[in-house]
Design a binder for these strands. Sequence first.
DNA 1: CATGAATGAGGTTTCATTCAT
DNA 2: TATGAATGAAACCTCATTCAT
Lengths: 216, 216, 216, 216
Amino acid sequence: MNSPARPTLKPRKTPVQARSTETVAAIYEATIQVLLSHGAERLTTTRVAERAGVSIGTLYQYYPNKQSLLFALLEQKLERVTSTLEIACKQARGKPLAQMLDHVVTQYVDAKMMRTDISTALYQISTEMGGPALVAKMQSRSLKALKDMIDTAPDVAAKPEPFIIQMIYTSMASAMRMVLEAGAAPIMVRKLRMHLVLLCQGYMSAVCGIRAIQET
Amino acid sequence: MNSPARPTLKPRKTPVQARSTETVAAIYEATIQVLLSHGAERLTTTRVAERAGVSIGTLYQYYPNKQSLLFALLEQKLERVTSTLEIACKQARGKPLAQMLDHVVTQYVDAKMMRTDISTALYQISTEMGGPALVAKMQSRSLKALKDMIDTAPDVAAKPEPFIIQMIYTSMASAMRMVLEAGAAPIMVRKLRMHLVLLCQGYMSAVCGIRAIQET
Amino acid sequence: MNSPARPTLKPRKTPVQARSTETVAAIYEATIQVLLSHGAERLTTTRVAERAGVSIGTLYQYYPNKQSLLFALLEQKLERVTSTLEIACKQARGKPLAQMLDHVVTQYVDAKMMRTDISTALYQISTEMGGPALVAKMQSRSLKALKDMIDTAPDVAAKPEPFIIQMIYTSMASAMRMVLEAGAAPIMVRKLRMHLVLLCQGYMSAVCGIRAIQET
Amino acid sequence: MNSPARPTLKPRKTPVQARSTETVAAIYEATIQVLLSHGAERLTTTRVAERAGVSIGTLYQYYPNKQSLLFALLEQKLERVTSTLEIACKQARGKPLAQMLDHVVTQYVDAKMMRTDISTALYQISTEMGGPALVAKMQSRSLKALKDMIDTAPDVAAKPEPFIIQMIYTSMASAMRMVLEAGAAPIMVRKLRMHLVLLCQGYMSAVCGIRAIQET
DNA sequence: CATGAATGAGGTTTCATTCAT
DNA sequence: TATGAATGAAACCTCATTCAT
């Protein structure tokens, strides 16, 4: 294992003016387009700039290097999905487990489904250094949110161990990916939402004892 | 989406002499090593050859291009796991659903766990064209095996629709991945096996009605 | 005969800024230099770039591959010679055959003699695919021009068949080559011009009957 | 101009045994095949060995390097054609010029036409060092033979200067090439023979005065 | 700010040649 | 002698990045 020179991942400048914002948006969209049409391996900064309709020099004015370009994509999407999940978890606190899972799954799936193109494009990236770390960070935030929520469920006999939460989270993420990579037809998405709830509920009730709520 | 000139993915020659068999093995191992230590993005044919202790020319005698090198890795592992799954599915035919899932999950996890280094390394590869196609092929073989098995379960009320089988398969694959990427400690693996069985059983019984076995 | 993947032969971009025009010219000249000093077999893109005083990357900004570099050379020269010939043929229409041949040969030899270095360098190239095709195209244009001219000669009894035109053209080209490869000393060139005219006239009058001009 | 390490061009060993002779012949034929099917640029020693049905090691037992392989091809053909020409020139001594040219052209064309595949294949080779030198040597032998012959013609007024002989030789060679590269259909060959004679006779009579034979 | 020409390290791949078996 | 595995110099080409205009 060796850690080579890690480039800066932060955007070079935060756009404030109108024109800059447009440019940044164009580059952002172009990156997704190229990712989807050419694949991560064949994404080049030149191609992105071309697609965005700006010069390569301009691209580098806003992103100090290629990694930061992809990193921005990943970060934005992950942040959005994660915070949606966190909010959903907060909202569902104190409700029965089944309702919790239903609510969270629904919110999660919907968050991922906005801009399916971005979600799909992102599966292509691994982004060497920054990517996994970011994903890990977001995952731990999500796990914490889920745990804190489930701990408030009135009908759960034993506090589930972390591993269980992880299983739930992973199942959600992977089922989502499965559907996205298959094209994310609306019917599939509806089915996904339902089955994911069932899967989580079935698993949880098998793993934690479920108390009758009135017992509380 | 455009499909550019796709290079040959098949190995260039099959080794016949003893010496060359060793060489191929060395290249194979080196590829895994490099994948793990440098990541897919920084895997170069030069580095692989170096690590394998052979010249770059020798590498190219056995693999016509870089892709074919990674493809071989992927194919071998996938083939092994998939056929293990197929066999497990055949063996479990006619048994009650719970036993089926237990058996299949156990076999699947064990197959993935041989050479965890390879399994882990492979998550890095997407290999542009050949990879996804291969993965899709193996998945459909797996889905068929699972379906044919579940259809023989005496205690399943309604034949599950394809989507359900896919959910099961995806959950298994993703949970496996989660554990492998976390380092695959033995305790985790044991826990994984158990929880995966519970997850599958919980989901299936929630989704298909389960008949009492003695009814048969 | 098999035609493998043929690379693009067209230049990659047309220079717009002043700086790049110079660069393209430098690469062009360098290619000739290297062709003459090292031979076609030992012409490498690196060597050309070096000689041109630009980086290898710059070379590839203007020519997508090695072939296109050589192709450009060939095309430019052939185009110039061919169009000179076409013009000469037009000019000589209606004149007696002997004068025609004199005029055409003179123009042809002179066109070839501008930048003898290029002409000489070009004999080294065959450029696999694009070369022969280009040469063939130019030849057919030339043959047409010659035929159309000769058909207007007042003193030619029978319209000469295509084969005869080709003999004339080939003889001109090969005699030219002979002299160029021998170093193209001025005396030789003068002799060449004269003898080529004699050869063409001698052959033509042996092959077509020559009518007395006053008959017209 | 720089002259790099020139490799040995002579075959490594002269085959004496029956098997060796077969092997050498196979390699020889394979070289022609590859030259015709793949072109000079894509002729590799491996491909030749493969086509010949021998191992690459065996090929190198008989030819010390790639150049010698091509050189052998060139040499054999050139030698054959040149000596045929020399003999034809000797035979025609003392005859009238027209008969001379007829005889020589016929012999020359026929010599080139045996194994048209070889003749055609050879146009692909330039072989960097050895080729041009060999060609030059053969040319000077040919020119000498032609000159010595023509000097004996009873009906030639003035001894033609060397340049004229060269024009004749070049015209013959190039017309030959033209027909070969066009596919060498039998009709074309017959026409070629006739027209080449006419061309030479026409040119010679234009250049040297022709005396009436009976004057002698 | 925007442009795009220029850079060159470094990657992939080929192929003539050697040499142990 | 024949084989073919191994070699590695050297070729082609890409692409992230810089910087003068």
